[in-house]
């Protein structure tokens, strides 16, 4: 089953003299979880920013289901099914957790001209928000103001918000960082249930989690792809060991 959803070719981003992402070719398939590893500063977050449209590519292209979306705005990419979460929590702090998700879900049924209806009463959007909160393990916290949630809970909310937009592609930037062990465990379970029906790109430092859920792993160093392949291949790769895994083992 090789259903390519998102593919890049020669994707690059330069910041002044620094090539943060350089000539990256990567393919995301529906039904596969693709993990991206690499030391800090490798360009993982920049890669996600390029795919989500938060940053413009300086070279290369991105195709989504055959369509060239390299120049598409971030909001359009979200609407056509590319959802992302942020490494640095990016929520609506003064809104309740539920409203954070409700607003995310509302983006799929925006109804801007329904000015005489109460947004909070629209059933389909409410339910989508509730499902997302539930999936991220926040069902009991919907009524709490987001800024009053614990750091770990805010990380969960970050994921719930992407889920509420019902994306086809999920770009997750270190979703487990900052979560408690139990929640991280739950999130790994969630990723497993999402994987069959989504194309997932997972940036994550937790090696155990990555090797437990990834179908494909790409290792990045200095903005470039060092190696890409099945988990067993990556684990066995001398280059990866030298450049990355080796450091972690010591």
């Amino acid at each position: 089953m090789s259903d390519v959803v998102l593919a890049t070719l020669g994707l690059s981003r330069r910041f002044g003299g620094l090539m943060a992402v350089s000539g990256v070719a990567i393919e995301l398939h529906r039904g596969r979880l693709h993990a991206v590893l690499g030391p800090n500063g490798a360009g993982k977050t920049t890669l996600i920013n390029l795919l989500s449209g938060d940053l413009a590519a300086t070279a290369g292209n991105i195709r989504y289901r055959g369509e060239d979306i390299t120049r598409c705005s971030a909001d359009r990419r979200s609407r056509i099914g590319i959802g992302r979460s942020y490494q640095k929590t990016n929520i609506f702090p003064a809104f309740t957790a539920f409203e954070n998700c409700r607003l995310a879900a509302q983006s799929r049924a925006p109804r801007p001209f329904a000015v005489f209806t109460d947004a909070a009463r629209h059933r389909p959007v409410r339910e989508a928000a509730e499902r997302a909160l539930d999936a991220a393990g926040l069902a009991a916290r919907g009524g709490s103001v987001a800024s009053a949630l614990s750091h770990g809970e805010q990380r969960q909310l970050e994921i719930a918000m992407v889920l509420a937009t019902a994306p086809e592609v999920l770009l997750l930037d270190e979703p487990l960082a900052g979560m408690g062990a139990e929640e991280a465990q739950r999130m790994v379970g969630l990723l497993r249930t999402l994987a069959p029906k989504h194309a997932i790109l997972l940036v994550e430092h937790d090696m155990d989690a990555v090797f437990a859920v990834a179908d494909v792993i790409t290792v990045m160093v200095n903005g470039q792809v060092l190696e890409s392949g099945a988990p067993a291949q990556i684990r066995a790769s001398p280059a990866v060991r030298r450049a990355y895994l080796g450091e972690a083992d010591e």
Partner: peptide, 12 residues
């Protein structure tokens, strides 16, 4: 509250 996230959620 957060224009950047709104854009990222798909709002024009």
């Amino acid at each position: 509250s957060n224009e950047h996230r709104m854009r990222s959620l798909g709002y024009p």
